[in-house]
C-alpha cells in the first residue's frame, strides 16, 4: 500500500511566476511522456510479472515516479501562484486558465487530457519492459 512522506524528493523553490513556462511544463505532469503515465505504467505492469526482482523493481520505480509527479505539480503550482490578469493573458496560458484557473490539471501542453492510450500494459514481460525503456527515454527527452 502507499504511505505518504511530507517532503519532496528534491527541493522546489521557484521565486518568479512564469505562466508561459508552466503551460509547457504541464506536459511533464499529464502529457503522454510525463510522470503520471510513468507511475501508472510501472504500477500496473507489476501485477503480471513472474519474478520477484521485477515486482520489486516496478513497484519501487512506480512509487518514485509518483514522487516525481508531485515535484512537477509543485513546479506548475509555484509558477502560477497569485497571477495578475495581465500575466494570465500571456501566450498560451489563458486557454488553460479559463477552465482550471491555477489548479494543476493532468494535461499535455497541447491541451489533451492525460489518457491511458499513451501507455501499454501487455502482461508480457519482454513487451512491458521494452515499452518501459522506450517511455523513459522519451521522458528524458522532455
Amino acid at each position: 500500500m502507499f504511505v505518504y512522506e511530507k517532503k519532496l524528493q528534491y527541493p522546489v523553490k521557484i521565486k518568479n511566476t512564469n505562466p508561459k513556462l508552466a503551460a509547457i511544463i504541464i506536459t511533464q505532469y499529464g502529457g503522454p511522456d510525463g510522470e503520471l503515465g510513468a507511475s501508472l505504467r510501472y504500477l500496473s505492469q507489476r501485477y503480471s510479472m513472474p519474478y520477484p526482482e521485477l515486482k520489486a523493481l516496478l513497484t519501487d520505480i512506480g512509487t518514485e515516479e509518483l514522487g516525481h509527479l508531485e515535484m512537477i505539480g509543485t513546479i506548475v503550482h509555484q509558477l502560477t501562484r497569485n497571477l495578475t490578469e495581465e500575466q494570465i493573458k500571456t501566450a498560451g496560458f489563458d486557454t488553460y486558465f479559463v477552465d482550471r484557473t491555477t489548479g494543476v490539471y493532468p494535461t499535455s501542453a497541447s491541451g489533451f487530457p492525460w489518457s491511458a492510450a499513451s501507455m501499454a500494459v501487455k502482461g508480457d514481460l519482454i513487451a512491458d519492459l521494452t515499452e518501459d525503456l522506450a517511455a523513459d527515454a522519451a521522458m528524458a527527452e522532455v
Binding site: K7, Q9, L57
Partner: peptide, 23 residues
C-alpha cells in the same frame, strides 16, 4: 537539514533499486 535528509533518502532509493538486481 531538509536537503541533507533528501540527499540521504535519495541515496537510499538508488541503493534500494540497485539491490533489487544485485541482492
Amino acid at each position: 537539514a531538509l536537503v541533507e535528509l533528501m540527499a540521504l533518502d535519495f541515496a537510499i532509493d538508488e541503493l534500494g533499486l540497485y539491490l533489487v538486481t544485485h541482492a
